[in-house]
Design a protein around this nucleic acid. Structure first.
Lengths: 352, 352
DNA sequence: GTGAAAGCGCTAACAA
DNA sequence: TTGTTAGCGCTTTCAC
């Protein structure tokens, strides 16, 4: 043993030393190179030697040090997925889809959170434990568009989630504007005249809330229905925010006959408050969410929602990143918009 | 520049070289040590030198290589959280809580999935990209108890989720048996006589399903109500499994007046199928879940569920792991059971 | 089929 | 205040 491990006490019942390849080599009476060859299943190793090495490995409880391996290899086999919050169902479900796909390429997804803050996001890419990852999938919500252009990195990056930003990065977006337009148009087409819109802050240019609010406005324009600013409720994206938003409208006596929630989570919160107020869904108030999370179709009544193109989104992200990893840039950074599709369920009335 | 980078084409509009500390040192006319000192904000560096180094860094777009740093330091500052599936709300929400806590210790949580398979779990700990992490929080569901004892690692590990397993690892559990007992007892106390139990496979010894099934049996025994094996439905833990389970009972004409779902997700799936069948909740059928995920109190009707002690669980995991990281083992491996508590909501009738 | 040497990029320890 | 040396644990290259 070269040195005592982290818990180096003698008589420690747990493992107590850090075993290196050199230890194994010594114990097996071979060179580290041979140990390396055995571990990596490389061909030209004698059967007897291999046996001895394997015995020594299991004897000493050797484990490769991946930090060293990565330093040498220049790659880690892991893809980072940096999202605002780990607990948002949309991202959790996206992570699952991506993990399935990258697994087939021999890569593992690890998920971390940015806290939806500029600092957290920059941290994920620029100030860069980036070389920990062979690639990064970053959900940008707070980084300034201008800053994006400054970021310097060699590593493969795919951005997701926000609107078209002229940037040097591959970028996959959902069609926020059109999805919101579809949702709102359906509400208006089925008789709603006062559609409340809940979540986020639509005043931040290029943000998801502003894009979805734009689709909301477009639908109103197309239907010739005016938008009442009182129906725009700014709030965050947790369950409670949806409930609070509805309660705030009711308390202030602001009438509405439909709700467009910027995310399904907000919609679920809203449904709770509507039920508490004794309002019937969809007879008194229709509700549409956005994201089409798995839960949407299981709620009672089931939640109408905008499917942002889950499968296509995951496919696109995967192939862009894999292309970067394998081939380098194949021309200009790509910017792709995945079409969204309203899914009508029980919280809305059927179209005319 | 030492060598062309991963995408080394000339005229590439993106960054095209990997810049090392040595490059910066050369460009600034100092040694790598000085660069290192500047980057790490160490004190004894002349102001002028610092300026020159910083200029060179921003000039060349230098970024530290963390693989190298970690190799040197022997630590990474990251804590791995390995869970069966990234999209299960219970784990997503646990991850958020843990991330909050570890952040205050200057550590980041990254989340990866094991696929609930023995292989994935062993991969996370034994076959060891373990030294990628300063510590690992592992949700064990498929590893054989005996295997657990074989695992050799120096790294701090805290196991979560399953029952008491004699092992060399710190281990934090929810009180599966008592939580399930509380849930079932409440159903029986409020008039239910045929309680269906949905999810998992209770035949696997020491598994979460078997423990919760045990609590279910205990409550029946205490109430003097016999258990009908037909009411035990084995299924996985997705939304659809909950719906399918209910449909299967109804199709087979097996009567029941209450449902204990092994997880809230299964409960949500069950509620959907019950609604489809025109059954009223809780009048015709009462429902209780387990996990008390955030969504539970927002459903309509709100879902009664067993809170497995979320905050205490997160606190306990954090302090055990931090203790291991800082101090090594402070005696024998700890095994802690966090008390569970039934939360009564709208899917059950009030007690007494 | 096996090994020796060199070095991935960084930093602790010591020297100047 | 700054630089030199050495080496973290591994793998590539090339010699034997």
């Amino acid at each position: 043993m070269k040195r005592s491990g982290r818990w180096g006490g003698e008589g420690d019942k747990r493992a107590s030393t850090v075993v290196t390849m050199a230890d194994v080599a010594r114990s097996a009476g071979v060179s580290t190179m041979t140990v390396s060859n055995v571990i990596n299943g490389r061909p030209r190793v004698g059967a007897a030697t291999r046996e001895r090495v394997l015995a020594a490995i299991s004897d000493l409880g050797y484990q490769v040090n991946l930090a060293a391996r990565h330093l040498r290899a220049g790659r880690t086999g892991v893809i980072g997925l940096a999202v605002p919050e780990l607990e948002r169902p949309y991202f959790a479900q996206l992570a699952g889809r991506l993990a399935d796909r990258f697994e087939t390429h021999g890569l593992r997804i690890v998920m971390e959170r940015t806290g939806a803050s500029r600092e957290g996001e920059l941290d994920a890419v620029a100030f860069s434990r980036l070389r920990m990852y062979d690639g990064l999938i970053l959900s940008v919500v707070d980084i300034d568009p201008a800053e994006l252009t400054q970021i310097r990195t060699d590593a493969p990056v795919v951005m997701i989630g926000e609107r078209a930003l002229p940037s040097r990065f591959d970028h996959v977006m959902m069609d926020n504007v059109d999805g919101a337009r579809q949702a709102t148009a359906h509400l208006l087409a089925t008789g709603a005249r006062r559609v409340a819109i809940l979540g986020g802050n639509p005043d931040i240019t290029a943000s998801m809330p502003s894009l979805r609010a734009e689709g909301y406005a477009v639908a109103h324009r197309e239907a010739g229905v005016p938008v009442d600013p009182e129906l725009v409720v700014r709030c965050s994206f947790r369950l409670q925010d949806g409930s609070d938003a509805i309660r705030s409208l009711l308390d202030r006596g602001i009438g509405f006959d439909a709700v467009f929630a910027l995310t399904d989570v907000v919609a679920i919160g809203a449904l709770r408050a509507l039920a508490d107020a004794g309002l019937r869904i969809p007879d008194d108030v229709q509700v549409v969410g956005f994201d089409d999370i798995d839960e949407a179709s299981y709620l009672v009544p089931s939640l109408s929602s905008v499917n942002p193109g889950h499968e296509e989104m995951a496919d696109t992200i995967t192939s862009l990143l894999i292309a970067q990893i394998n081939g380098g840039p194949t021309g200009d950074p790509k910017e792709l918009i995945v079409p969204a599709q309203l899914v009508q369920r029980g919280t809305t009335r059927p179209a005319g």
